[in-house]
């Protein structure tokens, strides 16, 4: 039987925040792309797979220093985003939303199976660098350095991104484009560039999230991106489609819900976890049909 001490509850909230931070980062990128293209970018999840394996290769196999590996992972994520944008989405825009969605599912399937060919279907043990693996035991909380790394990095990224979108010229152009592509072009915004930059930023964030994911779970596999993509999608919908703060909030809610539904459920019911999470999500949607921070979806 689980004993509900305050320590236990605090610990679970902390765990939920760590997972939620990663979902929030993925959802952030996905919602930016959605806002501009009206595309649910399922292939976004594939970028965490690519990011994590890339880190594995650079750091664990090639033995690069940690900062160098991280920078390269981010760079590679950005490059992947640019490629995805160039080969596909520039051509896909304007089609019905569902066909864009299927296109992006196609990209996901493609990347996943390419990864499967390259790295084999076996999962890999993912060791984070020793300095991120130190365990700290406090009276109320036990955590590893990686947890702090995840929370701090995520918050930093979210703050930077919010400032970028609020204060910079490109950020304002992004918001304008997501409101109306046509009006954005009328005022002289080069939409192609806005789309590329959104993809680059979102993908770079997803790639570094891939590292965090691997470090937190300790294991990576060619198909880890699928559920990640689905969860990011769920997070942006719960938060309110198109809302950037909503996406982040949705990510945290999802992370905390998942952690709680394991932590506070009697052991025999662990398999109900996803069911309970989605049940609560459906309830949230019934109460808030446009997500928590969303505007009404204009059809």
């Amino acid at each position: 039987m689980i004993v509900l001490t305050p320590e236990y509850i605090i610990q679970q909230i902390f765990n939920g925040i760590v997972f939620g931070a990663m979902y929030a980062l993925l959802a952030l990128g996905m919602t930016v792309i959605y806002g501009i293209l009206r595309l649910i970018h399922f292939a976004h999840g594939a970028l965490i797979t690519v990011g994590s394996f890339c880190f594995y290769l650079l750091f664990m196999v090639l033995g690069l220093p940690f900062p160098a590996a991280i920078v390269l992972v981010i760079g590679l994520g950005a490059l992947m985003g640019l490629i995805l944008d160039m080969v596909a989405y520039k051509k896909a825009v304007g089609g019905p939303e569902v066909s864009m969605l299927i296109t992006s599912l196609g990209f996901y399937i493609f990347i996943e199976n390419l990864m499967k060919l390259i790295v084999s279907p076996q999962p890999y043990a993912f060791q984070s660098p020793p300095f991120l693996d130190t365990i700290y035991s406090m009276p109320v909380l036990t955590f590893r350095t990686i947890d702090i790394f995840i929370i701090a990095t995520s918050i930093a990224i979210m703050v930077f991104f919010t400032l970028f979108v609020k204060k910079t010229k490109m950020g304002v152009a992004m918001r304008a484009t997501s409101e109306s592509g046509e009006a954005a072009r009328m005022v002289g915004i080069n939409i192609g560039r806005v789309i590329s930059i959104s993809f680059i930023i979102a993908s770079a964030i997803a790639a570094i999230t891939g590292f965090m994911w691997g470090a937190k779970y300790g294991q990576i596999a060619y198909n880890m991106g699928f559920m990640a993509g689905v969860k990011a999608f769920v997070a942006i919908v719960i938060g309110g489609v198109g809302s950037i703060p909503g996406a982040m909030l949705g990510g945290f809610i999802l992370g905390i819900l998942e952690t709680f539904s394991v932590a506070f459920l009697p052991p025999g019911y662990a398999a109900y976890r996803d069911g309970i999470v989605f049940f609560i999500l459906i309830l949230i949607l019934i109460v808030k049909p446009s997500g928590i921070l969303g505007q009404r979806e204009v059809e």
Binding site: V172, A176, E179, A183, G188
Partner: peptide
């Protein structure tokens, strides 16, 4: 009109001078 309704008046004007 097609102004950007979720942006401020100032941001709308600034976007006019985007290029």
């Amino acid at each position: 009109r097609q102004i950007f309704s979720r942006l401020t008046v100032g941001e709308n004007l600034a976007l006019g001078a985007y290029h």
